Simulated assay, not measured.
Amino acid sequence: MSADPASNLASQPSRGLRTSAAGAVEVRRSARRRRTVSAYRDGDRTVVLIPARMSAAEEQRWVAVMLEKLAAQESRRMPGDDELAARAERLSEQYLHGHAVPDTVRWVTNQNSRWGSCTPAEGSIRLSHRLRGMPEYVIDYVLLHELAHLLVPGHGPRFWKLLESYPRTERARGYLEGVDAVDRLPDPQRDLDTARE
């Protein structure tokens, strides 16, 4: 994966968005690329950068290879449900005096408009898969936020008082607000692809 996704991108027009089992995939061909192929996640889609001269069969093979590599990288970075539950227990002890004790803590793939959710009556906490790859302090903040909901259901002063002890609350909130803002920005390429359909 390229360190700088935008490097060497004197692109020819994109071949458009397509979907795979891993979600939307956008292939961008570049006349400046000679041999290298790179890929990165851009929100819920994957962008694969390939040389312009590559055949359709080579493109298809490389897209599959790059999706597999990205998935492997992400699975190494994203803790599993058991590790997430242990993390929740540690955060509850450290910041909530151990008062928030969830019955279940798990990752889910069906939350695209929120980062996490909590059902106090069931003691369940769910974190969105969209958090994967984000800094640990951001994941910890979302987890702590949901743990606090086990104690205080709403977002009133009592709720925010519980989060005051976490030193990176404001930084994590700013990070997540930034991600949300970028997701709402117009995407000229996506708009162009939609207009062509």
Rank of each mutant, 00 (worst) to 15 (best):
A88P: 02
L67V: 13
E89S: 12
M78G: 11
E59G: 10
V65N: 09
D82I: 04
R77K: 13
E74L: 06
M78D: 10
A72F: 04
Q73L: 07
P79R: 06
E68D: 10
A86Y: 07
L70D: 05
Q73E: 02
R87G: 01
A57D: 13
W62H: 13
A85D: 02
R90A: 15
A72T: 01
P79V: 14
P79Y: 01
L84W: 03
A56L: 01
R77E: 02
L70T: 05
E68K: 14
A85M: 14
A56C: 02
A85V: 02
L67I: 06
R61E: 15
D82Y: 00
P79L: 15
W62Q: 14
A72D: 08
A72N: 05
M66C: 03
S75V: 04
D81P: 03
E89N: 01
A71N: 03
A64C: 05
M78Y: 00
K69I: 05
R76Q: 14
A64W: 00
Q73A: 14
M66V: 07
V65A: 14
L67S: 10
A56W: 00
E83L: 13
A57K: 06
P79I: 14
A86K: 13
E89L: 09
M78Q: 14
M66A: 04
A57L: 08
E68P: 03
A56E: 12
K69C: 05
P79S: 14
E83Y: 02
A57W: 09
D81G: 07
A57H: 11
A72L: 06
M78C: 13
K69D: 05
A64P: 00
R90D: 07
E59R: 07
M78T: 15
A85P: 02
A85R: 11
M78E: 11
Q60N: 09
K69A: 11
A85Y: 12
P79A: 10
A71M: 08
A72R: 12
M78K: 15
A64H: 02
E74D: 11
G80S: 15
L67T: 08
R87L: 03
A64L: 05
A86L: 12
R90K: 09
R77D: 03
D82T: 07
D81L: 03
K69H: 08
R61G: 12
A86N: 12
A88M: 02
E68N: 10
E83V: 09
A64T: 06
E89R: 11
E89Q: 08
K69Y: 02
G80C: 13
D81N: 13
A88G: 07
A56K: 05
A88Q: 00
Q60W: 07
L84E: 02
K69W: 02
E83H: 01
L67P: 04
K69P: 04
R77L: 14
R61T: 12
E74V: 07
Q60D: 15
A56S: 03
E83N: 08
R61M: 11
A64M: 03
Q60I: 10
D82W: 01
Q73W: 00
G80N: 14
E58P: 01
A56R: 04
A85L: 06
R76V: 09
E89G: 06
P79N: 14
E74M: 08
E68Q: 12
R76I: 14
L70G: 04
R61K: 09
E59C: 12
